[in-house]
Write a protein that binds this DNA or RNA. Structure first.
Lengths: 201, 201
DNA sequence: AGATCAACCAAGCAAGCGCTAGTGTAAACC
DNA sequence: GGTTTACACTAGCGCTTGCTTGGTTGATCT
């Protein structure tokens, strides 16, 4: 069994699995459905993945890794001000939601279907991502950009952002950048941000 | 079959089902597990519910009805100011989350498992609830309490609130009222609300 | 030319699934 | 006092599930 490696074939199969998991849910997605979508027979599936659980873990890992990488890159590329960093994180979050939407929806909805081992491994990845957020929020609090309880504010923000997967329409008029701007405007105390973006210092 | 009525026995069974659906997920919860939890045999279950789907629908309906009733009551009992009404809605939302948590978690996570008929019926209920929110948010916008896009603000707020089911600990120090107050403080422009609540006019 | 190996297939097993059929029984009703 | 009703039981049908087994293929490497 070719279970360990990270072959391009496996990556493609993972992408297809994510799509089906979103459409049907993990439990209702049978290995036969997965195989058909992949153009192979159900038995062949277990050449690439040890079991069905491992497919789920692969899907979630893929999405979380991408989110983490994108957030780190965004923080490196943006300016030093608390406002800029807040914007950068919000933009990165919504951007990964667009490009890896299936994986993130699966991560949000099917997390509990992971076995203990995968859940443990993946929760470390997710914690790393959330720590980035809490750090940026701490900076915003220190800068007086936002006010309130550190813990609560970050939960509220994560909630507002993650909830977008339920209603955001990529075909619609609103760009992810617009959402990011609006969210930051909503939580910062600079009441009336003028229409012209004040992203630069 | 006693399928239609709303007997107290059926209500109790629904409550137990909600708990199991949260623990295991709808698909992984078998009718045999449900029956055991209820202290009857699996066959007897179908005396109370037409099929497994109907149990899910009953759980979600119960939670949504309660949320709607609580929100309406809260709006009637509170003052007329936009701030008070915003607070009242947030408090009611978090309160129903505490008392009917299982039902709401099921509603959020297992909505897609509903058949078309139930989904149609229940989405009307949910729409009624969300309309209450959008109305109150409109008032807050008009009063200058908050700023931004009507649609986006309400989605962000719903997201922040609904996300609480993932982290809120009823045993913890924070009361639902505290969360409500903090959320309203975060999104309103009255930057520094003094510690003494300004709920009365 | 022979060996290796990832990738696939056909067939099927054991377990578990939702649900039905038919029956028993104690209380409620006429 | 006979009939109805509500609720529970036993037994099991027909089907689907995740996964295994044993074998084939074609490309790559030595």
């Amino acid at each position: 069994m070719n279970v360990v490696n990270e072959s391009p074939r496996r990556k493609e199969l993972t992408r297809l699995a994510a799509q089906l998991f979103v459409q049907e849910g993990f439990d209702r997605t049978t290995v036969r459905m997965l195989a058909q979508e992949m153009g192979i027979k159900s038995g062949s599936l277990f050449h690439h993945f040890r079991d069905k659980q491992e497919i789920l873990a692969a899907v979630i890992e893929e999405g979380t890794q991408n989110a983490l990488a994108l957030a780190r890159q965004a923080l490196e590329e943006c300016g030093d001000s608390a406002g800029e960093r807040l914007h950068a994180m919000a933009r990165a979050h919504l951007q990964t939601l667009l490009t890896d939407r299936n994986a993130h929806v699966v991560a949000l909805y099917e997390w509990r279907r992971l076995d203990a081992a995968s859940r443990d491994h993946l929760s470390h990845l997710r914690d790393a991502y959330e720590e980035l957020w809490e750090q940026v929020i701490d900076e915003a609090l220190a800068a007086g950009l936002i006010h309130g309880d550190r813990f609560l504010v970050s939960r509220f923000v994560m909630g507002a952002l993650n909830w977008t997967v339920r209603w955001y329409d990529p075909e619609g008029a609103r760009k992810p950048e617009d959402l990011a701007h609006e969210l930051v405007a909503m939580i910062t105390t600079s009441a009336h941000t003028p229409p012209g973006l004040s992203t630069k210092v």
